[in-house]
């Protein structure tokens, strides 16, 4: 068939569902990336502390 899908007058519901799904599935990796940067900053702080303590 391959015809273009018609949304009928339910575009809002379909759009909201897929929009929400897309939002979550983009948000999650992005949040994890931000969390990783903050964790690495924390580790770098430890690295500096240990370096000062040794030398």
């Amino acid at each position: 068939m391959g015809s273009l899908p018609s949304m009928g007058d339910y575009g809002f519901y379909i759009g909201a569902s897929y929009g929400l799904a897309l939002l979550f599935m983009l948000l999650e990796p992005w949040l994890l990336g931000r969390k990783k940067r903050s964790v690495i900053k924390n580790v770098q702080r430890f690295v500096r502390i240990n370096k000062n303590r040794h030398d």
Partner: peptide, 12 residues
């Protein structure tokens, strides 16, 4: 794209 727009009991 490969599915009917309206099913017997359900619409789009």
């Amino acid at each position: 794209f490969q599915t009917p727009d309206i099913l017997t009991d359900q619409k789009q």
